[in-house]
Design a protein around this nucleic acid. Sequence first.
DNA 1: TAGTGGTCTAGACCACGTT
DNA 2: ACGTGGTCTAGACCACTAG
Lengths: 269, 269
Amino acid sequence: MPAYRYPRLVLRHAHDESSGGSGVATAAPAQAAFSPLYRQIKTLLVQSLDRGEWKPGEAIPSELELASRFQVSQGTVRKAIDELAAENMLVRRQGKGTFVSTHNEARVRYRFLRLAPDEGGEPAPASSRVLDCRRLRAPQEVARVLDLRAGESVVQIRRLLAFGDVPTVLDDIWLSGALFRGLTLERLVRNELPLYAFFETAFGVSMLRADEKLRAVPANPEAAAILEVPEHTPLLHVDRLSYTYGGRPVEMRRGLYRTDRHHYRTSVN
Amino acid sequence: MPAYRYPRLVLRHAHDESSGGSGVATAAPAQAAFSPLYRQIKTLLVQSLDRGEWKPGEAIPSELELASRFQVSQGTVRKAIDELAAENMLVRRQGKGTFVSTHNEARVRYRFLRLAPDEGGEPAPASSRVLDCRRLRAPQEVARVLDLRAGESVVQIRRLLAFGDVPTVLDDIWLSGALFRGLTLERLVRNELPLYAFFETAFGVSMLRADEKLRAVPANPEAAAILEVPEHTPLLHVDRLSYTYGGRPVEMRRGLYRTDRHHYRTSVN
DNA sequence: TAGTGGTCTAGACCACGTT
DNA sequence: ACGTGGTCTAGACCACTAG
């Protein structure tokens, strides 16, 4: 028996619902927009994930179990899960079950780091050094893209990623202060995990997707010093906006990448 | 009755095939690798597309028709088509049919041009000017990535893309000479279509997918002159390898992008 | 009205992983 | 042996497009 009571699904076709009547005789509200059963189920599953009903790394209930919960056939649940798996929110494992995606897995560690070494091969193990972490009132642009009220509190992090001995990525990161209550420089420095794994574990915020805008810019004096390149060296400037469940933006990030030994890889479909 | 005789599908499970025996009593060859019916069908469909049995823009046969051709249920054909649609090789249109993707459509014109104006809005209509087109023996790197024999003939194109009056993208493009027989500067200059639409229409080569590697580099004297920026201005350097049906590489492209008014947009999942 | 893709069901069986 | 996801079928009906 599930802890959460799912809303009744709205069928598209006019089945005679008199059988199994539960005594609830609500006046049917004007249903503005129908959507297929499997999409309604998908929405409910995302809400459960957002609510933390199943945590990253855990299994969700089996298809048969969900089918009986929602009173639909297995195939319909299956189609909902198919879409969530295609969006990397769930991971199917034949014979074992369907699991909530997590950043705490070696396989997926570099999903959001698009920088690869020029020689090919795996992204060299990166070492991360947090340079700064402070709380401030959200600058106008940050408030706008993170959908915060003007002047709301945000956390700003500056960190440096190095491959081997070569400092390569300088990131400035802005997070909603409300979501990341209790995030301090000390905790960041003590943390061993990749950032997104840390955010997931320590604050229950899962990064699912991000949009990025890339530019080539000259290194300013500060960045040049930190990245150990001559001033005006061309750097890759990466603006990232990351989203969690429901497409809510939760992180803004501005990165400067050295691309003398690495490149940013992407794919066009 | 189809012009092409499809190979027999290999079922995974051991149905008794004696009914409907066609008199062909071949000794069953050792089947090394099974794959689900819908994947075998997917492979056959890709082969048909590659062979040009259905041209870009045209409809493929209906699901029911294909089901009867392949002697499987509609659902199985459907799943094959689903995957091809997810890969942008086919486009479904409810009530009308399923169509072969084409670059000759306003909606999809900018699928491969990831550059967007900073102000937002649609990518401004770009004007393309072909600066050069010549045939030469493939340089080593080109031969390697295009999977050509050393010294085989290739076509090299240089072209400039401008937004409004601002020259913005300088591309060097290499194509297999064999595939693009008869491609000349004159035909390129006369052509009005976007390049990929032209390639599709005039040479039957469909670009389906591409991998890109991005770097920030300083403008060399030549690029600086053409793009009308000071020497050493940071430019986005984009290495592209494009693939057609069956994952065969057919175009190598090296671009230099001005990013003072535009940015390269991408998405991380 | 006919034809196409889209949704949904119920049931059978296969493949994989664990017990 | 059992439970999980994966494949396949046959059939019903819905939604959209066009003649």
